[in-house]
Amino acid sequence: MRLLDSAVSARTAWVLRALSVLLPLAAWQALSASGLVNPTFLPSPAAVWAAGADMAACGELWSDLVASLGRIGLGFALAVLISVPLGFAMGALPWAQSLAEPLIGLLRYLPASAFIPLLIIWLGIGEASKVALLVLGVVFFNTLMTADVVRRVPRRLLEVSATLGARRLRVAFRVVFPYALPGVIDAMRVNAAAAWNFVVVAELIAATSGLGYRITRAQRFLQTDRIFAILVVIGLIGLAIDILLRVLRARIGRWAA
């Protein structure tokens, strides 16, 4: 049996998943308990839990989480609404690829954070500039990844559809899009993580709410336990979004490998 063909049982898989979390947590606890690192720089898991519970009890955590989720939801939704149709056109139409890919390929190498001064000048320091930064950080990569997925649709499916007399528009919506949809969702999973990175960056500048804003406030007073607590929350929310997208992909794309 080849190495890549080997599999583990469901029970073993769950044990390995648990160990992937418990082992780093145990190492963290051991390091903080050893006294080798100042608690100001590396608080214990118990201290982080207490800080998170304190922020939740006073309502700070929930209000900041709602603010960040609102920006993520709007910015990511706009990026998807732009990138998926554009990427689909680039993947399905050679002329669209030739027209759009050079510009998008150039823009994706420009750091989105470098646009912050311009966004503040153009849109001010309110919500619009923060949402725009999210869109810029996601839209170009998601467009190119969507185009790659569409281009991987097997040519035999297109040939069979043409042989059966299907028109191009019907082939696009009844064959190409359903086949590519699981891959499009996979691209969204990857870029959802990027969206979280950019929302934190956006909230570090001229914000009065959000998880990134709360990290900045905690940094001013060396409240590293609060910083760690917020990072844990971001990781858990990101994991939940990833799981939801995985479930969605599994439900609508059972035929995909």
Rank of each mutant, 00 (worst) to 15 (best):
L3S: 07
D5H: 07
D5P: 00
V8E: 06
S9I: 04
A10K: 10
A13V: 05
V15N: 01
V15D: 03
L16R: 05
L16W: 04
L16C: 11
R17P: 01
A18H: 02
V21R: 13
L25E: 07
A27K: 08
A30L: 07
A33D: 15
S34W: 05
F41P: 05
P45E: 10
A46C: 08
A47G: 08
W49Q: 01
A50F: 00
A57S: 14
C58D: 06
E60T: 08
L61D: 06
L61E: 06
W62C: 07
L65N: 00
V66Y: 00
A67D: 05
S68K: 02
L69Q: 05
R71E: 03
R71Y: 02
I72G: 01
I72M: 08
G73I: 00
G73D: 06
L81D: 03
S83A: 13
L86G: 07
M90L: 12
G91S: 11
G91E: 10
L93V: 15
P94R: 15
P94V: 10
W95A: 09
A96Q: 14
L99Y: 10
P102V: 14
L103R: 02
L103Q: 11
I104N: 03
L107G: 05
R108Q: 15
R108V: 15
S113K: 00
I116K: 03
L119H: 01
I120K: 08
I120D: 14
I120F: 11
I121A: 14
I121K: 09
W122R: 11
W122G: 12
G126K: 03
S129V: 06
S129R: 12
K130Q: 09
K130E: 06
V131P: 02
V135K: 00
V138N: 04
V139L: 03
F140K: 00
F141A: 12
L144T: 12
L144K: 14
V149A: 14
V149I: 09
R151T: 07
R151G: 02
R152M: 09
A162K: 10
L164V: 04
L164I: 05
R168F: 10
R170G: 00
A172V: 08
V175L: 01
V176C: 06
Y179K: 08
Y179A: 14
A180E: 08
A180R: 01
A180V: 07
L181P: 01
L181K: 03
V184N: 11
V184Y: 04
I185E: 03
A187K: 02
V190Q: 15
N191A: 04
A195L: 04
A195S: 15
E203Y: 14
E203H: 12
I205C: 01
A206H: 10
A206V: 13
A206L: 13
A207S: 15
T208C: 00
G212K: 11
G212S: 11
T216I: 09
T216F: 00
T216H: 04
A218E: 12
A218F: 13
A218H: 14
R220Q: 12
F221N: 15
F221T: 15
F221Y: 13
L222Q: 11
Q223Y: 06
I227V: 14
I227C: 05
V233W: 02
V233N: 04
I234P: 05
G235S: 12
G238M: 11
L239T: 11
A240I: 11
I243L: 14
L245M: 11
R246P: 00
V247A: 11
A250N: 09
R251C: 05
R254L: 04
R254F: 03
W255D: 09
A256H: 02
A257T: 07
A257P: 03
